[in-house]
Design a protein around this nucleic acid. Structure first.
Length: 436
DNA sequence: TCTGGGGTCCTAGGACCC
DNA sequence: TCTGGGGTCCTAGGACCC
């Protein structure tokens, strides 16, 4: 049996943990750069503000309903997520948890009777509420897709205790709320497949389940066929699927103001390289390819649209900020075109291999190997310093520096806008909540 | 008149998830 | 004026081999 534990309106709930005065106030959280809505309280949903709406299109509703708007505070959400996952792990045993996203995880359970499963779920939900103040929905079922569906059903029903168990082989129960569930909202059925199904008059999970598996496979591919089997109670999404090591690392941002100078773009790209390289080292990996992409606004007039990317392969894989940086700068040089107003850029590391199992080139000299080891040692020290004394005490290239290496001051136009970011209550001593 | 059978690898694009 | 930031997997088609 699988349990899915899913935090309700996660980012909004994180803000409310430290702002109990907002418990009954409509609250929303905006994406980076204060661009789009990424998390909504139930009141905001009820007010008809859709997920992903750009802020400037909903100004009147924000005023009308008195909506409290937060800029995103990912250090806060990340820290509360860590605490949530640790608490769940402590309650369910190690090796039984699979973290699926920042706000949800699966837990693998032994088969018990329905009543005991239900008690287990309610107890866990209570502990999370008491320990962290976060509301969660818990679905328990014989497949991940059904567990997820159960949590969705129960989340939208305010009159229950936030947990729902779908026991194996219980077709009677599934005949009700599961069968009526809109097919387009089933995990694994997205917009495109959902629309095609509805066109064929298959608009609920039940009608989808009534089709033959062969038909689903032939018309919608392997993914949809797996979803079909999972809905029928056959677990076929691999237990460890989400746990395999990462295949790529991407760091990108939309800019607060458009960037038109190459030096500005270099500063931004070097910041993204630094972030990506840190993430790479944190997961004990090395990369052998660096990709840089830059682009104008998607909403720019056609003759002012431009976007391009370039990749540079490294002679040997690396997690060294300096080496990745010089590769990224070469890639940027290939795609940079003057005369455009750039709104976004990013850096991707791929060809990842594990540090303890990386494949050096056959022609690599002993001296080069030694140099690589020295560089790795240097990076470890840099990471330690930054962890201990704060972000970017030590950096490479232009990362996070307000000055160009040639000491020419450059304005950091590309920094994201964040007009209403909450404090880092749980990760920064300076931001500790004051109790009066 | 007739035009094989069996593979691998890479890439771009689409679809999906949060 | 203003439109996010991460990821994964599958599929089709092209290029190549014998």
């Amino acid at each position: 049996m699988y349990a899915l534990i899913d935090a309700n309106n996660f980012f909004v709930s994180c803000e409310r943990v430290f702002r109990p005065d907002l418990a009954d106030v409509p609250v929303l959280v905006l994406s980076n750069n204060d661009g789009c809505v990424v998390s909504r309280s139930n009141e905001v949903k009820a007010a008809g503000i859709p997920m992903g709406a750009p802020r400037f299109q909903i100004e009147t509703k924000i005023k009308k309903f008195g909506v409290e708007c937060f800029s995103s505070n990912f250090r806060l959400y990340g820290d509360l997520s860590d605490r949530l996952m640790r608490l769940i792990r402590a309650e369910s045993g190690s090796n039984r948890q699979e973290i699926y996203s920042i706000d949800e995880c699966f837990v693998w359970l032994d088969e018990m009777d329905e009543a005991r499963l239900s008690v287990w779920a309610r107890r866990l939900r209570g502990k999370i509420s008491q320990g962290l103040g976060l509301p969660v929905s818990i679905g328990v079922a014989p497949s991940k897709t059904l567990a997820k569906l159960a949590s969705e059903i129960i989340k939208s029903d305010p009159l229950n205790d936030g947990t729902l168990v779908l026991p194996p082989g219980d077709d009677e129960r599934r005949a009700g709320s599961v069968r009526e569930f809109p097919v387009g909202q089933v995990w694994g059925i997205g917009r495109a497949t959902g629309a095609k199904l509805v066109e064929k008059k298959i608009d609920t999970a039940g009608k989808f389940m009534d089709m033959s598996r062969e038909w689903v496979r032939a018309n919608f591919g392997l993914g949809a066929a797996k979803t079909w089997a999972e809905l029928h109670g056959t677990a076929c999404i691999d237990q460890l699927e989400a746990m395999v090591s990462h295949r790529q690392i991407l760091r990108s941002r939309s800019f607060g103001q458009a960037v038109t100078e190459k030096e500005q773009m270099q500063a931004a790209v070097s910041e993204f390289v630094t972030l990506a390289a840190e993430a790479c080292r944190r997961m004990g990996a090395r990369a052998n390819m660096v990709t840089v992409f830059i682009r104008t606004s998607n909403f720019a007039p056609v003759n002012q649209l431009y976007g391009n990317s370039a990749s540079v392969s490294l002679p040997m894989s690396s997690s060294n900020s300096g080496q990745l940086m010089s590769a990224a700068m070469r890639a940027l040089g290939r795609v940079w075109q003057p005369g455009f107003a750039y709104k976004k850029a990013g850096v991707m590391l791929s060809g990842l291999e594990q540090e303890n199992a990386w494949q050096p080139s056959l022609w690599l000299s002993a001296a080069a190997m030694q140099a690589d080891e020295r560089q790795s040692g240097l990076m470890k020290k840099v990471d330690q310093l930054n962890r201990r004394y704060g972000q970017r005490v030590v950096g490479a290239g232009w990362a996070g520096m307000s000055h160009h290496p040639k000491s020419k001051k450059i304005e950091q136009k590309w920094f994201s806008r964040a007009t209403n970011r909450s404090p880092e209550y749980s990760t920064d001593w300076q931001h500790l909540q004051r109790v009066r």
